[in-house]
Design a protein around this nucleic acid. Sequence first.
RNA 1: GGCCCCUUCGUCUAGUGGUCCAGGACAUUUGGUUCUCAUCCAAAAGAUCGCGGGUUCGACUCCCGCAGGGGUCACCA
Length: 475
Amino acid sequence: MKPVRTRFAPSPTGFLHVGGIRTALFAWLVARQAGGQFILRFEDTDKKREVEGAREHLIKSLRDLGLEYDEGPDIGGPYAPYTQSERLESYQRWAQRLIEAGRAYADPYTPEQVQGFREAAQAAKQPFLYRNHRPENPPAWDGSQPLRFKAEPKAYTRTDAVMGELTTGPEVIDDFVLIKSDGYPTYNFAHIVDDAEMEITHVMRGQEFLSSTPNYLNLYEALGLEAPILAHLPHIMNEAGNKKLGKRDGAKDVLDYIRDGYLPEAMINFIASMGWNDGTEQEIFTRDELIAKFSLDHVQRSGARFDERRLEWMNGAYIRELALDDLFDRVTDFWPPEAADYDDDYRKKVLGLIQERLKFFTELPQLTTFFFADLPLNPELIAGNKQLKKFDASELGNWLEQTKASLLDSDFSVGDLTDRLNALLEATGQKPGVLFSLIRIATTQAPASPGLADTMAVLGRDRTLARIDAQLSKL
RNA sequence: GGCCCCUUCGUCUAGUGGUCCAGGACAUUUGGUUCUCAUCCAAAAGAUCGCGGGUUCGACUCCCGCAGGGGUCACCA
């Protein structure tokens, strides 16, 4: 049996959003599961649309998400080059065969003429078919005109690895352009040649190619090639669910998610779960589990909406499972500037306290700044607290004084702090909802914070007492 | 407009003729976990399985029609 070889073949026209990365992911999973190869190929046959820096960006996206490829433009491989603009002789060679077999011909019309045909068809509410205008005696192809495929329209019934059995009639088969007048092949031609030469066994691509597939099948036959296994993936829709996710309406670059502190493994898990599941109730899959359990025939046929809240939940779930040291290494670039003055040991203690609250890393500053710097006193925290606003300043001040007195000779271990806090409850006769709220606000000035004793233990005696004093002076 | 594909809780989905008056997860709501936020635990609410016909003893599951949505009809991929 032939080794499984899959490819991801983007055009360097921009960044990768979740839809694009999912296509890459599924292809990667199929290859890894079979112990085969995953290949990156650049389809840069439209020079007008090319975007500067897109290649590097695409490569970085795959790398950062851990979708390593075995052959590609930057690392080479046995079928190099992996960039279509460097493979022009191949396309010429295959095109020549087609011409000799009478299956390709020069398009004698001007673009305006073809556009005229198209508009006429549109006006008549008919689909446009170039072959209705197929020239009887086309000129010899000299490279200055587009080279067109001479199709042999027929019906097809084929099996798609995801969509199942698909049927179309001859009316969808047309004479499409093989090689453009600028000398570059079209996607339609180039991908077929490349996939064949690179011995690709499975083609994963978006559903938008479903309707052109019969044309490709016709070309495979003309070329004497066997078509690879085809898998058309349903679209990922935008949040409103009314169209396929696209860069135009705000689809985010996957690298932006990484920059915001989403974990690659969570991204991968989440993206895989849009349109695929293993038939059980499992939601969280490690990379290795995905590789082991993935199957194209469990891929959904309908489109899925992209729900960022679910991604947040999953990322938080992954963060919680991380060993503290691992998490610490990953958040290096996300600390608030105030943290610069503190050593790793202190930061790690802080991180340990907020780990279960963190959904993505850019939240780190809002969750931790008060551990590193004194926040300005916020009177609203007390005035807006439904438990505390009932009491007047002298009562609150009195409790804070008692707290201070008790804390003075604490060793500030979590255990001792807890004991003293509990004793304070007795001494003041107040409920934790009142006393602890007051102390928590005084010592953090933050709307939310980890447990009181834990927080004070990390803050330490000097800072805790100073903050209580500060609160006292402003009651 | 032609052709193709799709259609289960708000969202992601399980479900391949009976075990489904439909299960899980996210989100939402409520309660508990000595304060807040979060975690965790428990619970609630949430889908007449797009609609209408068949087939069958029996259909979310099979067939037909319709509707809605998406895609495609480029010298873009």
